[in-house]
Design a protein around this nucleic acid. Structure first.
Lengths: 189, 189, 189, 189
DNA sequence: TATGAATGAGAGTTCATTCAT
DNA sequence: GATGAATGAACTCTCATTCAT
């Protein structure tokens, strides 16, 4: 990526997270990136496009971080644990990206189009869960309900750890958190 | 509440949810509420204050809906189930309030002050959970982690039901959802 | 004058002097006068009319304060001294009226009509000055130039005394001031 | 000064003098200056700042016009006459600036800060007067009283000449006016 | 590429005035 | 007479975007 474009990206991310999309002006972004406003519009046709590109960048970052190779002979529990861990790690190591992601997702600002682009990159998760249900490891409930609830827990746990960052290095906390997560989705008894 | 004020409230709620805070103009709100712009500013000094007051209204609505009488001789499981159910019901019966609440909470738009007002009205939940841990019904983990995760599940389940409203009348779905919830927080084995 | 009307007058005078005509709202005036906005508009059709009426009130107050009986056998010096003294006294004893007058006169706010109403009540001054020139007591210069300069001195002296009110009780100051005044207009040598 | 800024300055000066500060809208100024409203706010953060900057510009213009070199061997009478003449000239040759100055000074619109900036540039006048008193040319009265009265005369004379511009070329009028001025402040007898 | 002065539609907000009570 | 909620035109100011350099 060009140097200027990256500087704009970083400044935008930072300002959007502290002030919100609308409260952040393109002039502010340009200033903090040490470029002229014209330069910003050279790289991004509109403010909306800047936000959309930032979103896609975030999504790719998340997917890359969470992705795992799925093969038949893996232990399902360990696989899930790995993904959970990678998800959590991504959130706490990429606070800026996480916060942007959250704001973006609960914002009516954004075109549906963007939200769907690259959606299929998360397909592997669905495949994984489908297999988990078949092997009777996961609860036998509607897959969307399962995914939704699982995501809900992970996200709220990231939030918890971002507020209390010292807990990240506490093994008991991480074990407890994972237990809350896995007990929810796994078949019991 | 005065009639005009209520009309403004309703119009604002509706527009904020479809368009977002910033994309909604005070002129639009006034128009949809069938009042003059000046009237809006007669009841709410600024747009920000309108949003803040809406938030407090939402919060009160939620707290009133979820609140239960806690007494010593209640069955803990039934109590939790009741609260979970009331929470879910509130979400699906008050879609407008729920969506506003969500947008507000992930928005840097709002003064911290507002967020803290009335916070203590949710105290009864903490008391309940504390007791649940003592009686060895709930997992023995940090209370904030527990509350956070539980909230995360409930919210994502409301979201799931709002997207597929027909599931609300499907008893299996509700049972499954509660199972995902309770297994997460309850002590197992 | 009706009681309410007078309260409005006083509040308006006070606010106009501290904040200016435009910066003062009718709501502020009504509030400070402890009446409803509607009441203000009951007594004065518009804000402009309130200002105009205030002006006429000020002018009458000034003219009444300055007026003297002119007869043929008066000592001209004493007469002038008396008028000068009354003018100065009016200014320092009616600070509110004086300040309003000043603001009004240098404001493009006001209709020319108002300014001319009651203008003729100051006619006696011109008569007096005309006679002063004839009797070779005053300088033989264009009467408008004379009046203008004399007014300029008096007004700036009122201003001086309003800023340093303690000087009002100092006889030397008053004598000096009058000397500056009379030497300017009187024929010398 | 930039071209656009100057056009805004001139348009503002003109409109403020004919309509007053508050009756003049920023839109009107921009229109008459043939720039966009945004441009006005590019050069002046607020309308208030535009007015303040105009004031400082006026003041500098006046001070530059009136300033004289003071040396020990000058004839005091001639010096005073020169200053008086320059002051009068400034007023009639810069009607716009003069009128703005007057409106500004009798307006509660303006921050005290502005009024004090550059105040000390008029110091040379006080020095001059002090010397005039020592050399027994001027009356031995409080210096503020003297300055105030002198200013009062000059300003009212400018006003007189602005209303009757043809008098400016009449030598008798100018001589008479100066006589009214100098007799007021000079020691007599 | 990079700049930043210039643009102008449109935002939030104000306030003199009205009128039903 | 007295009230003050309601009005909406008009204001100041913002900001995404353009374009000549």
């Amino acid at each position: 990526m060009q140097e200027k474009k990256e500087k704009i990206f970083k400044a935008a991310l930072n300002l959007f997270n502290t002030q919100g999309f609308d409260a952040t002006t393109t002039a502010q972004i340009a200033k903090q990136a040490h470029v002229a406003t014209g330069t910003l519009f050279h790289y991004f046709k509109t403010k909306k496009e800047l936000i959309n590109q930032l979103y896609l960048y975030c999504r790719d970052s998340l997917v890359d971080a969470v992705a795992v190779e799925i093969s038949d002979d893996q232990d399902f529990y360990l696989l899930i644990r790995k993904i959970w861990r990678q998800f959590i790690n991504w959130g706490i190591n990429n606070k800026d990206l996480y916060l942007f992601f959250r704001q973006f997702n609960s914002s009516p600002y954004i075109s549906r189009v963007t939200r769907e682009k690259g959606q299929n990159r998360l397909k592997f998760l669905e495949i994984l869960i489908e297999r988990g249900k078949e092997s009777r490891f996961l609860k036998d409930v509607d897959i969307d309900l399962l995914v939704n609830s699982a995501m809900g827990i992970i996200i709220s746990q990231i939030e918890y750890l971002l507020i209390q960052p010292e807990k990240v290095y506490n093994q008991k906390t991480l074990d407890d958190a994972f237990r809350l997560f896995i007990d929810s989705i796994k078949k019991i008894g």
